[in-house]
């Protein structure tokens, strides 16, 4: 890696400074939309409609938030998202940890076959329609259980964890066996504690995809009381923007359609921001761990 060994020449100094400025500009452009949305959510409806919000809130008000927080559907969908995220992640781990352990054992009969069975699902996908019809035939439409179980296993996560388990020296397992441990005990007392970073990575992958997932929830859930936050958010942004009655109900108020949807967006980003420090640490590792290699 190029370290600060070579900063003698003027050209190098100029290069380093210009590079820093460009990187800074890129970072600002990555951050700006979030600042814009936050400012919008904190501005008055009038200023937002007039397009006067650019960087900071204009005529600061919390009206949009009080409108959002007074909406029962907001709380219902927020609660549902927490439910799907927590139990969905637990379900994933209950499948993936034992499955990855078994796949990583050399004495597993037909190991190549089982691994190929996992890999094939990553190359070939039956597609939206057969998956949907299958969920319907299994009676998992409009069901909390369907959302949780139907997306529990993911080939990428399974292989990531399997690679990690494979790298644990066999002597650990042999020592545990000498002490009379069975497979379940070996997995739970030896492999799981040794694999905390990998399990954390997989859990975070699950949490993020559960928190952000919207497509299948939109397709599989009809009952409003079961929809997650992302589906509710889509409903507000896409459908209510065309709803004239809703728009005119907002016309005379201190908030507008723009500030209300901005406020929901901010509310739904906050949990991601809270776990972001962990995300950043483990995702980088996870990408490098699981990306390549059989």
């Amino acid at each position: 890696m190029a370290t600060n060994m070579n900063l003698y020449s003027r050209g190098d100094k100029i290069f380093v400074i210009i590079n820093m400025i460009l990187i800074g500009m890129f970072a600002i452009s990555a951050l700006y939309p979030f600042i814009y949305i936050t400012s919008l959510s904190l501005s008055s409806g009038f200023e937002a409609r007039a397009g006067n919000v650019i960087l900071t809130p204009v005529s600061f008000t919390l009206e949009a938030y009080s409108r959002v927080l007074a909406e029962p559907m907001f709380w219902i969908s927020y609660g549902n998202t927490f439910f799907y995220t927590i139990f969905g992640t637990i379900a994933s781990l209950l499948f993936i940890i034992p499955g990855a352990y078994a796949l990583s054992r050399k004495r597993l009969f037909g190991r190549r076959f089982w691994n190929l069975m996992v890999a094939f699902t990553m190359w070939f996908n039956a597609g939206l329609i057969p998956f949907f019809l299958n969920m319907r035939d299994l009676g998992l439409l409009d069901s909390y259980f369907g959302i949780i179980i139907g997306f529990a296993v993911n080939g990428f996560n399974l292989i990531l964890l399997r690679n990690f388990f494979e790298a644990i020296p066999e002597s650990f397992e042999e020592a545990a066996k000498m002490d009379g441990a069975n497979e379940f005990q070996i997995l739970w007392k030896v492999f799981v504690p040794l694999s905390k970073p990998a399990i954390a990575t997989v859990s975070l992958f699950c949490v993020v995809s559960r928190w952000n997932g919207f497509f299948w929830a939109m397709v599989l859930l009809q009952d409003e009381d079961k929809i997650p936050l992302q589906v509710y958010l889509r409903h507000v942004i896409l459908e209510l923007s065309d709803d004239e009655e809703f728009a005119s109900s907002l016309l005379d108020s201190a908030y507008s359609f723009e500030t209300v949807s901005a406020a929901i967006i901010v509310c739904s980003i906050i949990p991601i921001l809270i776990i972001y420090p962990f995300l950043q640490r483990y995702f980088t590792q996870g990408i490098l761990l699981g990306g390549v290699k059989e």
């Binding site: 949807s261 967006i265 739904s268 995300l279």
Partner: peptide
């Protein structure tokens, strides 16, 4: 790490 619904919401706004 931000969901497509939020990104779309920001784009639309």
């Amino acid at each position: 790490f931000i969901s497509s619904v939020i990104i779309a919401g920001i784009v639309i706004t």
